[in-house]
C-alpha cells in the first residue's frame, strides 16, 4: 500500500535513451516506460500511464530493480523473476497487471538492440 501511495518512479523523464508503450492484456490500460541508459547500464527508469494498484506497484518495483542493472542482465529476466521481485501472490487474471511494466521493459530492450544492430 505504501509503494502504491508513493508511486515510486512514476513520472516523465527528460531526454530518455529509449521508451516503450505496453497495453495491459487484462483490461486495455496503457503504460509508457522510459529508460536512461549509459554504458549498457540502466541509469534511470520511469513510467507513466493509467494503472491499477497491482500494475502501479509492480511498475514501481520493476523500474527500481532495473536501475543500475546491465542490459544483458535485464534481458535474461523471466516472468518468474518478476513475480519474485514483486513478492506477493496474484490471481491468474491479475498476473497480467503485474507484467505490464516487464513487457514494456522487454520491448524497450528489444528496441535498443535493434538500434545497436542498425548502427553496426
Amino acid at each position: 500500500m505504501s509503494i502504491f501511495k508513493s508511486g515510486a518512479n512514476y513520472g516523465k523523464m527528460v531526454d530518455p535513451s529509449t521508451s516503450a508503450e505496453e497495453v495491459n492484456k487484462f483490461c486495455g490500460d496503457k503504460i509508457t516506460l522510459e529508460l536512461k541508459i549509459a554504458n549498457d547500464i540502466v541509469a534511470d527508469a520511469k513510467y507513466t500511464g493509467l494503472s491499477c494498484a497491482v500494475s502501479k506497484v509492480s511498475s514501481s518495483l520493476v523500474t527500481e530493480y532495473a536501475k543500475g542493472k546491465s542490459l544483458t542482465h535485464l534481458k535474461g529476466l523471466t516472468e518468474a523473476d518478476i513475480f519474485a521481485i514483486i513478492g506477493f501472490d496474484l490471481t491468474e487474471n491479475r498476473k497480467q497487471c503485474a507484467l505490464v511494466c516487464f513487457n514494456a521493459l522487454k520491448k524497450a530492450l528489444h528496441k535498443v538492440n535493434n538500434e545497436y544492430d542498425q548502427r553496426n
Binding site: 494503472s51 494498484a53 491479475r94 497487471c97
Partner: peptide
C-alpha cells in the same frame, strides 16, 4: 481510484463485479 482496485476489494467481500472497459 482504479476500477480493478475497487473490484478487488469487493471480491474480498464475496461480491463479484466486472471492472475495465
Amino acid at each position: 481510484v482504479h476500477a480493478h482496485d475497487v473490484s478487488a476489494i469487493l471480491d474480498q467481500r464475496g461480491i463479484a463485479v466486472r471492472s475495465g472497459y
